[in-house]
Design a protein around this nucleic acid. Structure first.
Lengths: 151, 151
DNA sequence: GTGTATTTGGTAAAATCTACCAAATCGGAG
DNA sequence: CTCCGATTTGGTAGATTTTACCAAATACAC
C-alpha cells in the first residue's frame, strides 16, 4: 500500500513538514508533479493525518510534565468509554495509551507548573468515575520527544 | 517572552502546520506582514523547533508499539551518558523521559511487528551497558497521540 | 513634547502551488 | 511479440503565496 517512494516522501515530510514540493521532489528524486500527486494521495488516504508545528515545551512556558499510570476500578464499557471520552477532550493530556502490565493506561500530561498539575489531578483526574489508582511519575528530563516513525 | 498573539499563532500552527501565512494572519487577526514576521521570529528564537507531517502509524505499517520502563544499574555520568546517547540515536525510540518513580526512564518504542520488537530488545536494549531492568508494557490501543501544547 | 527605536500594513517581484495536458510506462490478452 | 486500455509520468501556465523592502504608525524614554 505504502511503497518505497512513498516512504521516502513520508520520511522527508516528517523531518520537514513545510518543505516545498520542489525541495521534496528533488530529495526523493522525482518530478514535481508526480511528487505533488503522491503527497496529495497520502493526505487523502489518511496516511498523512495532518501537519503540525513542533513547539519547544519549556520555551513556550510549559515547565512541568508527568507520566501517569492509571488503573480503573471496573472495566465495563460504560466506565471505559467515559474515561476515554474525558481524557480525549482534556488538552493537557498529550498522550494516552491502553497497555499491558500493572496499569491499564499510560498518560503523558503537560502543564505550566506544579500548581496546574495539582489542579489537573484534583479537578479532572480524581473526578473521573471508576478510577482505582493513579500513580504520577514526574518527568525530570526530556531525553527525546520525537514524532517521526522510523522508516 | 511569548505573548498573547504569539500563542494564538502557535496554537494555530500546531493544529495546521501548513496553514498559509494568509490563513494564519486572518485567523489570528493581524496583517499578513506582521504575522509573517512573528512566525519567523518564533522559528528563529527556537520556540517553533520545526514542522512535521503526522503519519498514521498503523497505515504506514508500524503495527507494534510499547512503553518501556528502564532502570540503570549505576548512575555514573559514564553510564547515563552512554544510555542517553544510544537511545537518542535509535530511531525506533520515539520518546524517552527521565522520571521519578521506580524506573529511571520511560521510553516509547514503535516497530513494524513483534519480531522487530524482539530484535530491538535483543540487539539494542539488552546490550546497553549498565542496564538493571527493562519492563515492557505493550500498547494495546492508542487512545490519543497528540503533539499540541495546551495553550 | 521630542527624538529614537520598534512594530505595523502595504506592495511588488520572486517563488510556489495546483490543475491540466499529452507522452511515457505498465500489465494483461491474444 | 503486439496490441490495447489503464495508470503514471513530466511539463506547462495561471493563480496563489512567500518574502524582502518601504514608509507610516505606534511605543518608549527622557
Amino acid at each position: 500500500m505504502v511503497e518505497e517512494q512513498d516512504e521516502r516522501i513520508l520520511a522527508e515530510l516528517q523531518k520537514d513538514g513545510r518543505a516545498t514540493n520542489q525541495q521534496l521532489a528533488e530529495t526523493v528524486g522525482m518530478s514535481t508533479s508526480a511528487c505533488w500527486r503522491r503527497v496529495r494521495a497520502l493526505e487523502e488516504s489518511g496516511v498523512i493525518s495532518g501537519y503540525s508545528a513542533l513547539v519547544a515545551r519549556e520555551r513556550a512556558g510549559f515547565a512541568t510534565s508527568a507520566i501517569l499510570h492509571v488503573s480503573l476500578e471496573r472495566h465495563d464499557v460504560k466506565f471505559v468509554d467515559e474515561f476515554v471520552a474525558r481524557v480525549t477532550k482534556r488538552r493537557e493530556v498529550l498522550e494516552c495509551f491502553a497497555t499491558t502490565g500493572d496499569a491499564d493506561y499510560h498518560l503523558r500530561v503537560v502543564v505550566r507548573d506544579m500548581d496546574a498539575y495539582n489542579k489537573f489531578l484534583d479537578e479532572f483526574m480524581f473526578r473521573i468515575p471508576g478510577i482505582r489508582h493513579v500513580r504520577t511519575n514526574v518527568i525530570l528530563k526530556e531525553i527525546k520527544t520525537g514524532v517521526a516513525l522510523p522508516f
